[in-house]
């Protein structure tokens, strides 16, 4: 029991930090808090199943928990929509991407699978085999899909005139 606690206490701070960032990138603060606790709990219960490379595994757990939380929230949102007709939210204008904020918009406009691969690669700093672990796909598939996603993103950025060279000289 104590050995188990010690092991968890050794692993957990890094997991907490990484998963917190993972969630901050993908959801609102309240949901992030809930999902972080849930993810930790699963890590604690399944400590024996955790592979030595525990971060990708923990991201995978967080990903499932987040998907569950969002399913619940969508259900609630549908209910809310039936009760009240709200002011429509401001339309996201698909204008030229010219700043980092717009890069977020570019990502949002991509296929969700593509955008997620790119996020895991650039933000979580994962290699294709690690991405494969998070998404539950083969390393081969992750390599190929990541490559294609990068190409798609490049095209989108170039189409929007979002060149690396002009980035710094923006007025």
């Amino acid at each position: 029991m104590d050995a188990r606690r010690e092991r968890f206490e050794a692993i957990a701070p890094a997991v907490i930090d990484a998963v917190r960032r993972y969630l901050a990138r993908r959801t609102d603060p309240a949901t992030a808090d809930d999902v972080l606790s849930e993810t930790l709990l699963i890590c604690w219960r399944r400590l024996d199943e955790m592979p030595p490379e525990h971060l990708p595994w923990a991201y995978g757990v967080a990903r499932n928990c987040l998907a569950n939380a969002e399913r619940g929230r969508r259900r609630q949102a549908r209910l809310t929509a039936r009760i009240a007709i709200l002011d429509p939210p401001p339309e996201a204008v698909a204008g030229p991407a010219a700043s980092d904020t717009d890069l977020t918009a570019v990502l949002a406009a991509m296929r969700p699978e593509d955008a997620e691969l790119l996020r895991l690669w650039a933000w979580e700093d994962l290699t294709p085999p690690q991405i494969a672990l998070v998404l539950g796909i083969s390393a081969n598939a992750a390599t190929i899909r990541l490559h294609r996603s990068k190409q798609r993103l490049r095209k989108l950025i170039e189409a929007a005139g979002h060149e690396e060279s002009t980035e710094g000289s923006r007025p």
């Binding site: 917190r20 960032r21 901050a24 890069l103 977020t104 990502l107 650039a122 933000w123 993103l153 690396e164």
Partner: peptide
């Protein structure tokens, strides 16, 4: 590409 993407990382300032 990675550098560009990282600039848009919402958790960078967390």
């Amino acid at each position: 590409l990675r550098t560009t993407l990282r600039r848009a990382d919402p958790a960078a300032s967390l």
